[in-house]
Design a protein around this nucleic acid. Sequence first.
RNA 1: UCCUCGAUAGCUCAACGGUAGAGCACCCGGCUGUUAACCGGGUGGUUGUUGGUUCGAAUCCAACUCGGGGAGCCA
Length: 463
Amino acid sequence: MEEVLIKDLFRDPDSYLHRHFHVSGWVRTLRVSKTFGFIELNDGSFFRNLQVVFTDNLPNFEEVAKLPIATALRIEGQLVESPGAKQPWEMQATRIEVEGLSHSDYPLQKKRHSLEYLRTIAHLRPRSNTFSAVFRLRSLAAYAIHRFFQERNFVYVHTPIITGSDCEGAGQMFRVTTLDFPDYPRDEQGAVDFSQDFFGKETNLTVSGQLEAEAFCLAFRKVYTFGPTFRAENSNTPRHAAEFWMVEPEIAFADLYEDMALAEAMLKYILSYCLEQAPEEMEFFSRFIDPGLLPRLEHVINSDFGVVTYTEAIELLKKSGQSFNYPVEWGADLQTEHERYLTEQIFKKPVFVINYPKEIKAFYMRLNDDGRTVAAMDLLVPGVGEIIGGSQREERLPLLEARMKECGLDYKDYWWYLDLRKYGGTKHAGFGLGFERAIMYLTGIANIRDVIPFPRTVKAAEF
RNA sequence: UCCUCGAUAGCUCAACGGUAGAGCACCCGGCUGUUAACCGGGUGGUUGUUGGUUCGAAUCCAACUCGGGGAGCCA
């Protein structure tokens, strides 16, 4: 007998109606009367459940009537029109086989659970409606990203996860070592002797693939990375994780404006793709997680992102009359409250803030002609804040060296990075998209722990 | 790391110095079209941990642990 996926039933019910076939899946809920009952079955292929009707014509009716939630079943039957209001059709079961019994203390109940509670059962939460929707969407969004770049002839680069650059400058790193704790080999000064370590030098988990991506960019013209990234920061917020995924495109012969155009096109592509491919999931988020999500995303797709220079942003914030906890002043970094006000109150849509003072940005960003700002851009979005950070890179060797000196960096740690400027260097630009932050924006989920299958955050790696 | 709020049954919460409760879940029974089904009955607690105040602490105090929100760091 033919095995049918519930997704296929929902997408093309007419070709299955009045036909016999079998489905297999897990009991989401079960309701019984004396001589008949209903099972809502989810087979993992689709967000919605199939309603199965069974009667005491089944030899194992009594057994089926008492099945606990989450039991795995194989059901034979035929698809028929349903008299019920909530579904146009249902399966009339002729045979129900128990594949794997569940237990009555199954922790997921037929009612709404808090996201905090579900986090404590991370191995079971993908079976809940919310997480079923979140993780299917996460998968689609990842595919959308690859499609977007591949369609535009970008080359996908696997930059290393273990890095030997000991000063990438983007925060605390996790050390990678095979040295025995606590009996580290010591050198004459008593310091840890990393020459005896696996790689013969100090190594860490990467905080960014950008520097390596630049090397490939200057060979393949348009490249992107998409992989895990690690920060050992003691961050306790709903927006930070110790392990997260980042997308980092890098384009040659391009300036900051082309970089921004790329970022905007990419984000809109991901949104459109997900709305198109996962309408049920997106509808669910808009109903239960974040009312107003769908209109907002549609608005973003159909409108141009705002662009404002850092200097203009400072003026706008000063003129707003809004009182902030932190003073608004040229030269100081924008605080979260300033960023939120800009994107949520003034622009009410995603906005690029560009040309920041060089003192508050990384060494590799290209110095503007004014000599005091760099060609950097942050994309701020309502509700999430900074979702993308990027820049045009400094391609002029003397200027790059001067900036590194100012920042107290040692040339010899970056010898290969500097070589890129020496041998046919050209203007180029790129950005980093926090993948989870994009998922948060896309779903309305407010905590990054709820868009990562098994999240790693400070003091939390249970699963 | 800092500020702030919280932790009571499996889950969501009530009780705010004087015998610890409800809804849901679970168990038993009823119900011929249910939709977080419904109706009746039942089981279920060292009130996060440790210490203190008090005749008496879920309730007041302290520390710790864990969680929420805000800040810093950033993606």
